[in-house]
């Protein structure tokens, strides 16, 4: 069981280098295609971080982190079309709605643990896919769902006034992602982080320390849902129109847990790696490697294979440490 090492999870120097590169270098050397990819990588790494935090730090496996991601995306889009609120406020509202729904769902889900929690959250992801499949993502129409009835009403999702272009929106995304990572760090380094470490290791011991277990699990669920919800809003701004439900499907839910585990759940690097795996690596393969389309189709197999290898390896590591019988 890899445990929590604060300084490892957040190496300020290396992070500063990455941020400077992302903000000042990347936008000028990459073309529109790769900038969009990198934007989505940043978005996805937030979702990966939220799922990784639940698993690695609190010991809760949610296979349904795509749900708050989708909810945040939908809410942000709907409000963007319906109101003239500033974009960051939209993101905030999207995150809060996702967190509230996440908590409401978390209440029953957190009464169970382990396998049951994983299965229930996967089923909730499936339920969301059904709901989103019926509702569809807003695209400028009116009414509750905000879906247009005639194509001439189709409108793109707006971006913040100061980040209209792709490179500017990429910078904006990196900064918001960074703020979300900081938020997670503040929680992890403080009272909730210590409580989560106790809960993860042993619930009886956590109770004996006076920790209200359900309350702290709910806080974790809400924080993770908030992060994923804001990421959903960022995603909406990056794609701008005709968002399909692929990103938020059951398949995406399984895919997410695979890349999160492959990247590693204990550090920020794991989340970035997960973002890289899912948003950049495939395009690199299809663009530059022999085989092209082959890689796209076999991506799922590739990640299935990676997940299996990861599980086998972590089993070996646990055996080495004598953690298994």
């Amino acid at each position: 069981m890899g445990a929590i090492v604060k300084h490892k999870a957040f190496e300020p120097g290396a992070i500063a280098v990455i941020v400077v590169f992302a903000l000042f270098v990347a936008p000028s050397i990459f073309g529109a295609f790769w900038i969009t990819n990198l934007t989505q990588m940043a978005v996805f790494s937030v979702v990966a971080a939220s799922a990784g935090m639940l698993y690695g730090r609190v010991g809760l496996v949610s296979l349904g982190q795509v749900a708050p991601y989708g909810i945040g995306c939908w809410v942000t889009m709907r409000l963007a079309y319906a109101t003239s609120l500033p974009f960051p406020v939209l993101l905030l509202i999207g995150g809060i709605v996702a967190a509230v729904i996440g908590m409401l769902i978390g209440l029953p889900a957190l009464r169970v643990s382990g396998l049951y929690l994983a299965l229930v959250t996967l089923m909730l992801a499936a339920a969301l896919e059904t709901v989103l499949g019926v509702l569809k993502f807003p695209n400028g129409g009116s009414g509750f769902s905000g879906v247009v009835t005639s194509l001439s009403d189709l409108a793109p999702m707006r971006r913040p006034g100061f980040a209209e272009t792709d490179p500017a929106y990429f910078r904006f995304t990196v900064i918001v992602a960074l703020l979300l990572f900081l938020l997670a760090y503040v929680f992890l380094a403080g009272k909730p982080g210590r409580a989560w470490a106790s809960i993860r290791q042993s619930e009886p011991s956590a109770i004996a320390a006076g920790i209200a277990i359900t309350q702290y699990k709910l806080i974790a669920f809400a924080l993770a849902a908030f992060m994923a919800g804001v990421a959903g809003g960022l995603f909406a701004g990056s794609v701008q129109q005709s968002i399909g439900i692929d990103q938020f499907s059951r398949q995406a839910a399984l895919f997410l847990i695979a890349v999160v585990l492959m990247g590693g759940v204990h550090t920020l690097w794991g989340a970035l790696l997960a973002g890289f795996f899912s948003k950049v690596m495939l395009d690199l393969l299809t663009s530059y490697m022999v085989g092209g389309q082959f890689w796209n189709n076999f991506s799922l197999s590739l990640f299935g294979f990676g997940l299996m290898m990861n599980l086998i390896q972590s089993t070996k590591a646990m055996e080495k440490k004598g953690l298994l019988g």
Partner: peptide, 28 residues
């Protein structure tokens, strides 16, 4: 057998891995 000493959760993630693997092949 490689996961036989892990908890049910890790075992089920093993099945997720297989599912993803087969889904990729089927997609192609």
């Amino acid at each position: 057998p490689k996961l036989d000493r892990r908890d049910p959760l890790a075992k089920s993630l093993g099945m997720v891995a297989v599912a993803l693997f087969l889904m990729g092949i089927m997609k192609d």
